[in-house]
């Protein structure tokens, strides 16, 4: 079982903070397939947030295929982020290294590259329904 926390100064919507904390725990192996997430009641009683925020976070995790609700029992982890994508990491990293080399050759510095990646990521996500 993991505990959630809320950082009011992060600028990230509260439900998204919960989503990110579960994703992080999955990447780090703190949560494994079959583990149960805290119940909504447990989370709201612990960190004093709106139950709808917790439900929204769990729905988003379900949409991402990371958890599944079992009626009357709770919400359980159904996939791990670490193992699933790990095999693809190496090939993607090599491609990215090539791309970064090209960007540097074109005169972009570290900050410019970072900004380009961040904005492109955001735009790509905005384009999706």
């Amino acid at each position: 079982m993991i505990d959630f926390h809320l950082d009011p100064k992060s600028g990230v919507a509260p439900y998204m903070q919960l989503v990110q904390q579960v994703q992080q725990a999955l990447r780090l192996g703190m949560l494994k397939v079959g583990d149960q997430l805290p119940t909504v009641k447990h989370v709201v009683a612990k960190i004093a947030i709106n139950p709808n925020t917790v439900l929204k976070a769990y729905r988003e995790l379900e949409r991402q295929g990371l958890v599944a609700p079992k009626p009357g029992r709770g919400t359980f982890i159904t996939a791990t982020l670490a193992d699933d994508s790990l095999s693809a990491h190496q090939a993607l990293r090599t491609e990215l290294e090539h791309w970064i080399a090209k960007a540097e050759a074109a005169g972009l510095d570290h900050d410019a590259i970072q900004a380009l990646i961040t904005t492109t990521l955001r735009k790509t996500h905005q384009g999706k329904p």
Partner: peptide
């Protein structure tokens, strides 16, 4: 918030504390 989760009740609250409002 525990009552809200348990009882399915709607809430209106006034507050000066924006951090609390943001939270709940």
């Amino acid at each position: 918030m525990e009552f809200v989760a348990d009882l399915d009740v709607s809430v209106i609250l006034s507050s000066h504390l924006l951090s609390d409002v943001e939270r709940v």
